[in-house]
Simulated scan of single mutants.
Amino acid sequence: MQAEKLVLVLCAAIACVFSSEFLDQEWKAWKAKHEKEYSNFRDEIFRRKAWEATWQKVQKHNQLADQGLSRYRMAVNKFADMTPEERTSRKCFHSNKKSQNYVPMQDYSRILNIPESVDWRDSKCVNPVKNQGFCGSCWAFAAVGVFESHHCIKTKKLVEFSEQQLVDCDKGNDGCCGGMPDKAMAYITSHGIMQEKEYEYSGKQFQCLFKPDNALGFNVTKYYILPGEDNMALSLAFDGPMAVGIDASDDFQLYCNGIFEGGCTTDPNHAVIIVGYGTEHDEESNEDIDYWIVRNSWGEDWGDKGYVKMRRNTNTCGIATEASSVDLTR
């Protein structure tokens, strides 16, 4: 019996050594891929521990996905060396729930014959995915992205507008400390907006350098909040992309591909853009799963080339809580 126990102990020790060597290699490869450097040894030890916890979390989740028990997969991405608390504390969306809605509600509920699927990327009216960096400016990226697409839909010209102008100059929002896309839409309606090439994004808040003579103005008939996912789908199909708030939870931040549907609350803390919707048939459950196509502002190295599919008609992560859009005339 003692010999058998000794063999088991030795096997366990050998397995630990191989596991440690494997994780060492994975850690070094991950640091190189994401160009990670740490200020001192203690900081790297802390980040390595957080990364290992994330690595274990991702492996366990993807095993469930492999078994057909989850509709999406996770990745050991650029956020992997953050703790869950750090990831969930990254907030850049201010809710409108406690403030008076100063924009009219658009109701599409009487419109029928909604298309089965929509993807505004096919129209060449959605710019490449951008990266807000460490600035809490998701609200600015969401508002600007909506104006870029709607302007393109009307004029057939896709232009990149300046998020930095909103970060520096929109006093109705809080720069890198967060804001609301609909308030940013109000600012753009009143002041116009410069092009990105004339007011480049820095990822930090500075003094306002807005030049009215260089700004493009818009004929805005209205900007509005949309109630409910049916209205959101109809607005998206007939008018164009929209800004929404979601809870960018710990699980969401590690998303890789598939249809994300869980591990979050319905209290938004992050602003993104819906650019389409569709339906996929799930062979495991033999049911059709509706989803949104969502453009994030965390760069193309996050998620599915910067995008995420989120389950539709279930208010996943509060996506139906505060959706806003704009109507432009030529």
Rank of each mutant, 00 (worst) to 15 (best):
K156D: 14
I153F: 10
A184C: 06
E116A: 13
T83K: 06
E148R: 11
D122Y: 08
S149W: 03
V167F: 06
H191C: 02
D81T: 08
G145L: 09
K130M: 12
S89Y: 01
C177S: 15
S109P: 04
K97Q: 14
T155M: 01
K171Q: 13
A80V: 12
E85I: 06
C138V: 03
E163W: 00
N173W: 08
E160M: 09
E200S: 12
A186K: 15
D182G: 00
V126D: 02
I114Q: 14
V146D: 07
E116M: 12
R110G: 02
N173T: 05
Y102F: 15
C135S: 05
M180A: 13
K157R: 10
S109D: 12
R121A: 02
H150I: 14
K197C: 00
G175K: 12
S117C: 03
K156E: 11
Y187E: 08
D182F: 15
Y199S: 01
A80T: 12
R110H: 13
Y108H: 12
M180S: 14
D122F: 03
V118W: 10
F141C: 07
G175D: 05
A143P: 11
S109I: 11
E198R: 12
R90G: 00
W120D: 09
N96S: 15
V126I: 15
S109R: 15
T189E: 15
L166F: 05
K91G: 00
Y102R: 14
T88A: 10
G178K: 08
C152S: 03
S117D: 08
C138N: 06
S95I: 03
E196S: 13
E85L: 11
S162N: 09
E163I: 01
Q164L: 07
Y108S: 10
V126C: 05
C169V: 04
H94N: 11
N113S: 14
F147M: 14
S149N: 04
L158V: 03
I114P: 00
K156R: 11
M185A: 12
T88E: 15
S149R: 05
E116H: 10
K91T: 11
Y187S: 04
E116L: 14
A184K: 03
A186L: 11
V167Q: 08
N127V: 14
K197N: 11
D122S: 09
K130F: 00
V144G: 07
G178L: 10
V144P: 08
P181H: 12
Q132M: 10
G192R: 03
G178Y: 05
E198W: 03
Q165H: 06
H150V: 14
P181L: 13
N131M: 08
E196D: 14
S109V: 09
S149L: 09
W139E: 02
Q165N: 06
P128Y: 01
A142P: 13
Y199F: 11
C177D: 13
K197F: 04
H151L: 08
I153P: 00
